[in-house]
Simulated assay, not measured.
Amino acid sequence: MAGLQLEEVRKVYGNGQVAVHDASFRIEDGELMVLVGPSGCGKSTLLRMIAGLEEITSGTLRIGGRVVNDVAPKDRDIAMVFQSYALYPHMTVAENLGFGLKLRGQPRAEVERRVAAAAAMLGLEGMLGKRPREMSGGQRQRVALGRALVREPEVFLLDEPLSNLDAKLRHSTRTEIARLHRRLGTTMVYVTHDQVEAMTLGQRIVVLDAGRIQQIDTPMVLYERPANLFVAGFLGSPAMNLLEGELQAADGLRLAVDGAPAAGVPLPGATVPDAWLGRRVVLGVRPEHLSPAPGDGLPARVEVVEAVGSEAYLHLDFAGRPLVSRLPPQSLPVPGAELRMRADPAHLHFFDPQSGARLAI
């Protein structure tokens, strides 16, 4: 096993496009780190630089303390799992699992030992004689994982390995990867655009946008204290509600929103520094912290009700702005109903509308 250290790692293509801007962070030995962000944010490019499949323009990459900028991929002691399974269709599962080891000249007994161990770990024992066409997508992805597993590398790199699976298979395979990491204790770097995958798998998460690192932390810190508007809007399903306006102290703290009723957004129980009064801010409220309340609250009209069993989502309209409220199972309002909604004062987020940075109270 080995940790990774990136020091101002940068990738610039020949046309001048900067894909990754000076990425600096450490992945601890045995950690499962997730790189997440929208398409084109640089996450896969960063992973490919770690793998040695993309040249590093500048900066330093260390694996296990060794600088590997100019080390060939085959000599980095890494194993990579791609979005496509890339299995040999004419080979059995056992042959697919052991093929890379045979190419490296491993003795037959060692190949069989590693193949058997990987098959047992991934529940593939009864499928070793099958060919890929006889298997489901989830089973093929497990074979792809097993092919990396038999290498016994210092670092696993996974590039959106679940993207080709349906929702049910994604969930079950995600659980298998988490169990596999706990069992092996091997360093893993996992790339995804799916923030649910990132939140459920990562011990820590690197959030990227436009090639720049926005925040690095544990899933719950990112969720509860996003560093900026991008992280606040990207992580969370449904996304955080965001409203821009001016903070005022008339009859208690409230946010005056352009084009909204004069009462704006009442914030009973919330406190902010006196210097913030009269300042324009972006108020953030997670859907679970916005709920119907009698009396003083922001007026909203119910547009759509989504009841999904264990919880329900109210899609609301507030002065032409969409809001979402997450509620436990209960008697739900009907579309068209007029409600008063109140934000939990203990779970409010404030951001600067120009820089997007979080404002610390």
Rank of each mutant, 00 (worst) to 15 (best):
P299T: 06
I50M: 06
A19W: 05
R358K: 12
K11M: 00
D296I: 12
E160P: 05
Q106D: 06
K168T: 07
F99A: 13
I50E: 04
P261M: 14
A263N: 10
D344F: 11
G100Y: 09
H21E: 02
R140M: 04
P345Y: 04
T45P: 05
S355H: 10
T271R: 15
I177Q: 06
V18M: 07
N15C: 01
L87D: 03
D209Y: 13
P89K: 00
L255A: 14
I361T: 08
F156W: 14
P226I: 12
A263C: 10
M199P: 02
T173G: 10
A167E: 02
L6R: 12
A249Q: 14
L101A: 06
S84M: 14
D75S: 03
K168D: 06
D194Q: 02
D29M: 07
G252L: 15
Q203D: 02
G137D: 12
A275N: 15
P335S: 06
R147L: 03
E160R: 05
L180Y: 09
A79R: 05
A249F: 15
A293C: 08
D251A: 00
R212G: 00
F351H: 00
L339G: 03
L253A: 06
V285W: 13
G138C: 07
L327P: 15
R140P: 04
L124A: 03
N15P: 01
M341A: 10
R204P: 04
E288T: 01
M121P: 12
V302R: 08
A51G: 09
R142W: 15
A346N: 15
P261K: 13
S39C: 05
L277D: 04
H90E: 02
E338I: 14
E110P: 02
A72Q: 08
V18A: 04
Y88D: 05
